[in-house]
Design a protein around this nucleic acid. Structure first.
Lengths: 206, 206
DNA sequence: TTGTTGGGTTAACGCTGTTAATTAAATTTG
DNA sequence: CAAATTTAATTAACAGCGTTAACCCAACAA
């Protein structure tokens, strides 16, 4: 049955995701995944071209999750409030899905895979949708009096970069490490919170 | 002679650095390095504990370079100008030494190595010095009337995070990719420049 | 001359991702 | 119903990886 085939493909992805979460991409082996699913290692190649192809599937799934979470923000009427809420969603997504976040925004391999010529446009959709959602929010902010005289594309990239910087340094441990080395009783989650608040105040005054 | 021993250790590091720059850490093999130096692969283990140990050596070298570049900023008298110059130095270091930057601020492995109990304090020095240099500049800014009423430790972390976000997204290609997908004739180096300028203006008004 | 050490090599191990050859099951055809 | 063919999975195997163990040989010491 075709259903079984699809099931197995999903099972492989699920196992890969779980293992990747626990041990990271590099340390997760094809044989690991196969064992988890209960199949032979080479069977995986009937469903995925190679290991990178599995990662690519997770890459897309991650963007699907993120763009769905962004969708809930449609009902925040005030555009600047929506922008702020978007930042909070982005940060909590990054912290609660560290593995996805790494595949989506830190590793280079999935991006190289996406740059290949034979990549269908559909593979881009979710990722671009997320970014265009940000772009729209920033633009709507501008239409409501914020960010007057600024280039919204640059602004959007800058806002993204700032959020990414916080999340990346938090997730890879640098933030905690530096904080603890320089001041024993610093609360990093508080730092993240305050940095975010401060940043929103800064751009609000633009 | 002992001199030869030190020479060889340096040669290995140099070869590793060069290969790592061209192919990345993961794709650079011990046998590659050995071939480049003209020795047997296992000889490397006489000088370095393992592959991670080589990376750790590069990690420290990177911080040495960065902290030296920061040192040149001592002669910028105005503290806020010094802060801005520091940002420019940081960014150009990141863009011109992508491999070092990756080891220093993106990969987790060197950081794990640094967290081991037997790690001597000296291994921390350069890295911490860089951060404390930032901290000092921010503090001096505050003493000169900037950033009144703000926690300088949080502020320093936030500034760092923002610079890191720009550099990380630039170096791993996300910035160029998104920019090109959303607008064909966007100049990413211009975006970086403008983001930086805008950011400095923002924090100046704090 | 024998022994000892230091710096290097080759051989080998247990992994890895992946391909080729093979088997077993399901489905289609006569 | 039986034969042929397609599909889905397996086992065997390969080249390359980081790393360890065993070995070799020149330099020096007793």
């Amino acid at each position: 049955m075709k259903k079984n085939r699809e099931n197995l493909k999903q099972d492989i992805l699920l196992a890969a995701k779980s293992l990747f979460q626990n041990k990271g991409y590099q340390k997760t082996t094809m044989r690991n995944i196969a064992l988890e699913v209960g199949i032979s290692a080479t069977t995986i190649y009937l469903y995925y071209k190679d290991k990178a192809d599995i990662m690519h599937a997770l890459h897309q799934e991650g963007f699907k999750i993120l763009s769905q979470q962004f969708l809930t923000l449609r009902y925040v009427e005030n555009p600047f409030e929506r922008l702020k809420a978007m930042g909070r969603v982005y940060i909590s997504f990054a912290l609660e899905n560290r593995d996805f976040y790494e595949i989506m925004f830190i590793m280079k391999e999935p991006l190289a895979h996406l740059q290949q010529e034979d990549t269908p446009d559909s593979d881009w959709e979710e990722g671009l949708a997320s970014y265009e959602f940000l772009l729209d929010v920033v633009e709507e902010c501008q239409q409501n009096g914020y960010f007057q005289g600024y280039n919204i594309k640059n602004l959007a990239l800058m806002i993204w970069a700032n959020m990414h910087g916080l999340c990346a340094l938090k997730n890879n441990g640098h933030l905690d490490l530096v904080a603890s080395k320089v001041d024993q009783d610093i609360d990093v989650s508080m730092v993240m919170q305050q940095s975010f608040d401060l940043y929103t105040k800064m751009i609000e005054k633009l």
